[in-house]
Amino acid sequence: MLILTRRPGERVVIGEEILVTVMGVSGHTVRLGIAAPQGIPIYREEIWLAVMEENRAAAAAHADALPAEPPAPEQTSPQAVSPEPSGESAQEQPTDPPAAH
């Protein structure tokens, strides 16, 4: 593994198109700015690993693994609730601090 020492404001260039900037350091937290071509997915590692694990577990299902009929009513979560979302359900609300770009 290549290990580099950088100060806030300094950058690392990966290849021709990926630019990683150290935005700031605060205690044990480092803020990175990542500029990359639009087609390159960028994930926090722990989320990427967790989603990969869920995807693989889902893909391991056998053809008959799903309930053949809806479960008994007393065990269902609120299916009676309308699938219509509330007005804000599907809206994006970017509370996540931008890690990139």
């Binding site: 087609g39 997915p41 359900s89 809206q91 996540d96 990139a100 770009h101």
Partner: peptide, 17 residues
């Protein structure tokens, strides 16, 4: 259908991508 309170906030990097 299963989660009445489901709500989606698309990550900023995904919105851009």
């Amino acid at each position: 259908q299963f989660f009445a309170t489901f709500s989606l906030q698309i990550a900023a990097e995904d919105r851009e991508r």
